[in-house]
């Protein structure tokens, strides 16, 4: 079966007033249909840049990429769950979740039904008529995830979606995310700076080098599914997490030195 996402030698150079800055070099990755791939790297390594390129929100400088369309040509190729939620404060929770469908001119009745269904699944049915300003950070991110899934894209791109949450909410949301993902089995590219999170969620962990970013190593995660936080108590989890950290450590040091220079 052909891969769902193919990226070949993707490169990104930013033109600034002080010259060119290489953000991404020779980045090649294939993601299978239904696979959950996590990309981990030190801050500023260009992982979010890669995601935005995949999302079509930023042009690439060199290389090529493609997301394979599905059977239904009307379905969007990708949708992004942003770190800052990026749900619209001026729309109610329901209107936010129905946003993608509304943009595709799905009738009001149909999109409301789909959005309500997703709100039910993320446990926010009661908050349908609230505005984002009236709900907590964890709930906002649930709205953001429901907005993406209600739009039913071919692939889901997640840019550190839990990064802004506190540690406890984050742990709860990781499990919730796993539960929802098991229901849909969508192809996911998930950006994070947390090794623990990437091992817990992913089928594969892609480790990136510090600036300029490219792939350093790819770790398959052979932990059984469905996973819960009990998984994190197993030796296999601990060993893999440590192995990735050993590989990442040097890159983090380099990134820190570069920032000081």
């Amino acid at each position: 079966m052909a891969p769902k996402i193919i990226a070949r030698n993707v490169g990104k150079v930013y033109e600034t007033r002080r010259g060119q800055v290489e953000a991404l070099v020779d980045f090649s990755l294939e993601v299978e249909e239904g696979e959950f791939v996590c990309i981990v790297g030190p801050s500023g390594c260009g992982k979010s840049t890669f995601l935005r390129i995949l999302a079509g929100l930023e042009p690439l400088t060199s290389g090529e990429y493609a997301i394979a369309p599905g059977d239904d040509p009307n379905k969007p190729l990708n949708n992004v769950v942003f770190q800052e939620y990026a749900i619209f404060p001026w729309k109610t929770v329901l209107e936010n979740v129905a946003f993608g469908l509304q943009m595709r001119s799905v009738s009001k009745r149909e999109r409301t039904a789909i959005a309500m269904d997703w709100l039910e699944r993320v446990g926010l049915r009661k908050f349908a008529d609230h505005y984002p300003g009236q709900i907590s950070g964890g709930m906002k991110q649930r709205v953001s995830i429901a907005r993406a899934l209600a739009n039913d894209p071919e692939v889901l791109l997640m840019d550190e979606p839990l990064g802004a949450l506190d540690a406890q909410t984050r742990t709860v949301m990781q499990e919730e995310l796993m539960r929802i993902w098991e229901e849909t089995r969508k192809t996911v590219v998930y950006i994070t700076h947390s090794i623990e999170e990437s091992v817990f969620l992913g089928d594969r962990v892609v480790l990136m080098t510090a600036h300029p970013g490219t792939i350093k190593e790819i770790f398959p995660v052979d932990l059984p599914r469905p996973r819960s936080h009990k998984t994190t108590a197993t030796p296999a989890y601990a060993e893999l997490t440590y192995a990735i950290w050993q590989s990442l450590q040097g890159e983090v040091m380099r990134a820190m030195q570069e920032q000081q220079a």
């Binding site: 935005r52 999302a55 079509g56 929100l57 969007p76 990708n78 949708n79 992004v80 942003f82 800052e84 990026a86 749900i87 619209f88 946003f99 993608g100 943009m103 595709r104 907005r147 739009n151």
Partner: peptide
């Protein structure tokens, strides 16, 4: 980020 979200959801 709102503009990006709008674009990404096909506005």
């Amino acid at each position: 980020v709102y503009i990006m979200a709008g674009k990404n959801y096909g506005a």
